[in-house]
Design a protein around this nucleic acid. Structure first.
Lengths: 105, 105
DNA sequence: CACATTAATCGATAATCGACGATGTTCGAA
DNA sequence: TTCGAACATCGTCGATTATCGATTAATGTG
């Protein structure tokens, strides 16, 4: 596979795109994990989906500019994309807080 | 048509549903208009879509618990739903602010 | 080198979504 | 009472999305 994954220009990302990407339970879960700013591998997300399906969700977040994906050997590390945090700080913070609140219920 | 439109129980609304509903330019525009807390009629939203398509978007927002729809005679008034504002205050505020910022660009 | 691991991508399928025109209902006006 | 305006809903369409299994690529490991 291409060792370089395509990440969109953050300026080209629209708010609607971001919200649409966040509007899915699986992807919200991924965001809640990478919200700590660290890199994570697949094992950190225990979703019971086919591997290819999970890859798809990661790609949606990546295409929305929210997630940074780095390949190292056969491993894949994902983390919150800094430019996204800068550009959508308030939205991401409030969404992640609401997600925690909902999960805690 | 039924003079009473169905509005979901606000407790049954999930964050993912809300974000998914907000993840569309037309619906973001509607939200930005009703954010003032007042009631609005169709003429306040100048979208160049078929009437039925606009109705569809209104219904999506209504089903996400975000919008209150009141019929009076042949007119339809829509406004921000108070329970949604209470439950998702931070998310709505940040999203609407980001929308304004994006539009102002 | 052969083989297992990790994960993107491809191809298929089913479900959902955005858009539209047509229809039906309610109401106000002539 | 008949007409028109306003708007929800229905049926349909093409496009997108979610899911999966299979394939492929890269890299470890025996």
């Amino acid at each position: 596979m291409p060792r370089e994954l395509a990440h969109p220009d953050i300026e080209a990302v629209t708010l609607a795109k971001v919200l649409s990407a966040l509007g899915d339970p699986v992807r919200l879960h991924v965001m809640s994990i990478i919200a700590d700013g660290n890199e994570h591998t697949r094992k950190d997300f225990d979703v019971r989906l086919a591997q290819s399906t999970f890859s798809h969700h990661i790609k949606v977040l990546r295409d929305a500019g929210l997630l940074l994906q780095r390949m190292e050997g056969t491993r894949c590390y994902v983390s919150l994309r800094d430019e996204a945090r800068d550009r959508f700080a308030a939205v991401l913070d409030s969404v992640l807080a609401a997600d925690r609140a909902e999960r805690a219920k």
